[in-house]
């Protein structure tokens, strides 16, 4: 079982995601803004990071992902996106942002678990 950091400014999303992942036996750390997010990752070195794409500002998630990579963290990152692909931003895994996979909100527990397991397996 793995240690997973969830960084999202929506406490309800953290709560729901934590519950899903805890039910599969994972341990969860969480943070509500980019600064705290960086701190918990730095201090606990989790097996996987789940990162919301838009926190305070559009692109906050992108910048934090870039910061992790720049600082040498190779932890797999799963990014939560909430902007529909039809509206403007279009991205695929690894495109522009150094993340490993995406999950579009609203999150379905099955899909989340599947993606988390895949990333943990690759590791």
């Amino acid at each position: 079982m793995a240690l997973i950091a969830i960084i999202d400014d929506d406490p309800d999303i953290i709560e729901a995601s934590s519950l899903v992942l805890k039910s599969k036996g994972h341990d969860i750390l969480s943070a509500g803004n980019p600064d705290d997010g960086f701190k918990i990752v730095e201090e606990n070195n989790p097996d996987l990071i789940i990162l919301d794409v838009m926190m305070d500002e559009p692109d906050d998630g992108f910048f934090l992902a870039q910061k992790f990579r720049r600082e040498g963290f190779e932890t797999p990152i799963l990014m939560y996106t909430s902007v529909s692909k039809t509206i403007g931003f279009e991205y695929g895994a690894g495109e522009m942002v150094p993340v490993d996979d995406f999950v579009e909100k609203p999150i379905s527990p099955d899909q989340l678990v599947e993606k988390v397991n895949n990333l943990l397996k690759e590791k």
Partner: peptide
């Protein structure tokens, strides 16, 4: 979408 995602998240759980 943000509140909808939160509510749907709870319902799905």
């Amino acid at each position: 979408k943000t509140p909808l995602a939160a509510v749907l998240g709870y319902i799905r759980i």
